[in-house]
Every structure is written in structure tokens, then in C-alpha cells.
């Protein structure tokens, strides 16, 4: 049946916020195209997520269980999602624009002979042609591009944290379809040896309400310790601009921006970050951006709501003290 298919992901026993964002997007398409919303869930023991997917807008859930689908592995996932697509025949497949989706989306598009649109921020029907069209950033966030698929099959990855997550509707149900995936270990060309977590405060950057972030102006790894302290006081996560991760001051997984994570906290505190468009592209969903930089002409002040022209260190140190007092910790 034609429709929109969302690839669902889970973390720590929950559907990810990414999935809820995609379901919200798919539900909007349902209104526009009058097509049902389907979700695909892959893994082992994923049954408990099926009712959650219904409750967040899925009309059908394709459930593929296989030992080789426990944890993301590109070769296994592309085979599974491809088999689901052959059964579901979706016109639009939506994947999260995370490490997994950015790898998997184009591979699936290749196999489905579909059009591929990366990192869309919005979509609509073109008024003139009635065709589906996507908008996305281009040129490192300096421009917006409109992309119109020519074919009736599209795979698209969503730029995360641009859509509001779908709300839960109690008692909503749908149809569950089990898919027996034909998959053998010999098909897997890569093997995970080790996975290392590097989150400083134990709070995921993509879900954090407060993000404390540092850039070139922090001048070294020591400065980030102070930012970590501030993040701990505020119960937030620590991030960095590419300048800081490329210098090796903090792990690459802390990178915020076009290449790294997209964040949409209530409060984004940018210390010593000049505000290159590629960085700003990853923080545009933030409710309040505060910039602290010695250069009053830094582009970060063009996107910030509150600014301080000052050396970051003195500001951060005082901020830690005052926040401790204010929050009583």
C-alpha cells in the first residue's frame, strides 16, 4: 500500500525523540497526501515498542526480528529495511539524519532506485505541480534549497531537531505485520569490535534541555573542564564546535553542527564560538542562544538572543557560582 514509512529507533527502552519527530512529519504527509503512516522496527524483542508506535501515529508497524539486527549494522539493516519496503511499497521512506540514517538512507535509495533527499528541514506540496517537495539547507547553512523528486519513490533523511515530536494518543491502535528477514552472517561485511561512550555528564546532547558549548576561544582541553562543571550544575550536556574537536581538545562525538549533532535545547550557551554557518546550522532549533565572545563582530551574535562581549573564562566561572546559588546546589 502506498504511504510513508518511518524507520523507528530506540534507546534505553524508549522510542527515540528522532522517531517521534519522523512520525510527526509522516502524519503531516498523511494529511497532505491522504496516505497511511507505517513504521518499521528492527531488532530483537522489539514487540513492546509496537503499541508505542501506534500511539504516536503509525497505522501499520512492520516488525522484523532477527539476531543479526540487534544493534545497528549497515549491511544487515539495509537488507531488512529493503525487504520491508518491498512488502510495504511506500512512496516515501523517512529516516533520522543520524549516523545510522545518513549511512542507510542512500544505500536504501540505491536499492529501491528511489530519489534520495538528505537532511530535509521541511516538505510541502508544490502549488503548481502538486508534487511533493523538500527544503534543505545548502552551502553550510548559508542557503536553502528546494528539491523536487521526479520519481514516485523517495528516501529522505530528516535533519533532526527541526520537527516537533509527535504527541502520544492513548488507545490508538493499528495493524502489526511481522517480517521474516532472510539474513545470514555471511552477508555482513563489517563487524563491530568495540563501542566507547564519551558523554561528559551522562546526558545525551540531542535530548539535553541545556547545552554548554565551547569553541576555538577555549584554547585547550583544560577550559572544557570548566564548561563540564557548568553543565553539571545546570544538568546539561557539553558540546563543541568543529574547531575544538579537530584540535583534539574534546572527543569528536561532541561536535555540534552540520557534520555532528543537531541540538534544540531550551538554552544553548556558546563560549568562545565564532559562529560559522556550519555550526549555527546545528543549533538553529535552540529556544535561547547565549553567546560569550571577546569579538563583538563574531557572527554568533547575529543568531544569539543574549550576548556578552568578554573573555569566556571569567564569565563561566561566575556563572557556575551564581547558578549554584540560584539553583540551591
Amino acid at each position: 500500500m502506498p504511504g510513508t514509512l518511518v524507520l523507528a529507533t530506540t534507546k534505553d527502552g524508549r522510542l527515540t525523540r528522532d522517531t517521534l519527530e519522523l512520525l510527526a512529519g509522516a502524519s503531516r504527509l498523511k494529511e497532505k497526501l491522504a496516505q497511511p503512516v507505517a513504521a518499521a522496527i528492527l531488532g530483537t524483542g522489539v514487540g513492546p515498542y509496537v503499541p508505542l508506535l501506534f500511539a504516536h501515529g503509525a497505522d501499520q508497524v512492520y516488525r522484523a526480528e532477527h539476531p543479526l539486527l540487534e544493534g545497528y549494522q549497515g549491511d544487515a539493516y539495509v537488507v531488512a529495511i529493503h525487504q520491508i519496503c518491498e512488502r510495504a511499497q511506500p512512496t516515501v521512506v523517512l529516516l533520522p539524519g543520524d549516523v545510522m540514517g545518513r549511512e542507510l538512507g542512500p544505500r536504501l535509495a540505491y536499492r529501491l532506485q528511489a530519489a534520495f533527499v538528505g537532511e530535509f528541514i521541511d516538505f510541502d506540496l508544490d502549488q503548481a505541480s502538486g508534487r511533493l517537495q523538500f527544503t534543505r539547507q545548502a552551502y553550510g547553512g548559508k542557503a536553502i534549497a528546494v528539491v523536487q523528486p521526479h520519481v514516485n519513490s523517495v528516501v529522505a533523511t530528516a535533519k533532526l531537531r527541526t520537527l516537533e515530536p509527535a504527541a502520544q494518543e492513548e488507545g490508538r491502535t493499528g495493524e502489526e505485520i511481522r517480517i521474516d528477514v532472510a539474513l545470514e552472517a555471511s552477508q555482513l561485511k563489517t563487524h563491530l569490535i568495540k563501542r566507547v561512550r564519551e558523554e561528559a555528564t551522562g546526558i545525551n546532547l540531542g535530548d539535553a534541555k541545556i547545552v554548554v558549548s565551547g569553541g576555538r576561544g577555549i584554547h585547550g582541553p583544560e577550559g572544557f573542564k570548566l564548561l563540564e562543571d557548568l553543565a553539571r550544575v545546570l544538568k546539561g550536556a557539553v558540546g563543541a564546535s568543529r574547531a575544538a574537536t579537530d584540535a583534539g581538545w574534546v572527543p569528536s562525538s561532541w561536535q555540534i553542527g552540520q557534520t555532528g549533532r543537531n541540538v534544540s535545547p531550551d538554552l544553548y550557551l556558546a563560549f568562545g564560538i565564532s559562529g560559522a554557518t556550519q555550526h549555527v546550522a546545528g543549533i538553529s532549533g535552540s529556544k535561547c542562544i547565549v553567546a560569550v565572545n571577546t569579538d563583538p563582530a563574531a557572527p554568533i551574535f547575529k543568531v544569539a538572543q543574549l550576548g556578552i562581549v568578554e573573555d569566556w573564562k571569567a564569565v563561566a566561572t561566575t556563572l557556575i557560582e551564581r547558578c549554584r546559588e540560584l539553583t540551591g546546589k
Binding site: D126, H150, I308
Partner: peptide
């Protein structure tokens, strides 16, 4: 090509940054 880029434009961004003033960094931070 399976998709066409039909338009590319520079978005209009309007944001007003309120600069926090003070005599010392500590005062501004407070």
C-alpha cells in the same frame, strides 16, 4: 537525475541580540 533542485535562496534571518553590559566580567555574568 531522480530529483531536481528547483530553487536555492538565501533565507532572511532576523534576530536581535540583547548585549549584557557591566563593568566587569563577573558583573555581566551575574
Amino acid at each position: 537525475a531522480r530529483a531536481a533542485i528547483t530553487d536555492v535562496y538565501i533565507p532572511v534571518k532576523e534576530s536581535k541580540c540583547e548585549m549584557i553590559e557591566g563593568n566587569t566580567p563577573e558583573e555581566k555574568a551575574a
